[in-house]
């Protein structure tokens, strides 16, 4: 079954639903590891640095975006790791997924920024197109 799951999140409603599906798949096998990945976007780096007093606050504010997902995973007693990547979300997730050994990538169909998706296309679409392993897009 699926042993190593990459769960890409951004703190949105959709990524919570993706987490729900990841939990379903993970509970099918006994020693499954979920890697929860959040991409700190390049285009927001300036804003985020400006609006936090120091590195620690920045780190905490990012962890806060993951914490609802973490709570869900903890509630089911699943083992997981959290990883914060830096870059442009689509290509960064693709790169990370293809470099690691994942059995499946799970991602929400939409993120936080609807306007950007209209112009640039959605992250989930890019991930589905370019990741080598199976991809589950959660609506």
């Amino acid at each position: 079954m699926y042993q190593r799951i990459l769960l890409a999140v951004d703190g949105s409603e959709h990524s919570l639903r993706a987490a729900q599906e990841a939990i379903k798949i993970a509970s099918l096998s006994t020693n499954c590891v979920i890697e929860v990945v959040l991409v700190a976007e390049f285009s927001k780096a300036k804003d985020e640095v400006l609006h936090s007093q120091g590195k620690e606050e920045l780190e905490i504010s990012r962890r806060k975006r993951i914490s609802p997902v973490e709570k869900k995973l903890q509630a089911k007693d699943l083992s997981y790791e959290v990883k914060i990547l830096h870059g442009v979300p689509g290509p960064t997730i693709v790169d990370y997924a293809n470099k690691g050994t994942f059995d499946i990538v799970i991602i929400g169909s939409r993120g936080l920024n609807t306007l950007q998706e209209m112009v640039l296309g959605s992250v989930s679409h890019k991930v589905a197109k370019r990741v080598n392993c199976p991809v589950m897009i959660v609506k």
Partner: peptide, 12 residues
């Protein structure tokens, strides 16, 4: 120094 904090963050 502000810029270097931003580059620090972007590159981790």
């Amino acid at each position: 120094l502000l810029t270097s904090s931003i580059v620090d963050d972007m590159t981790g």
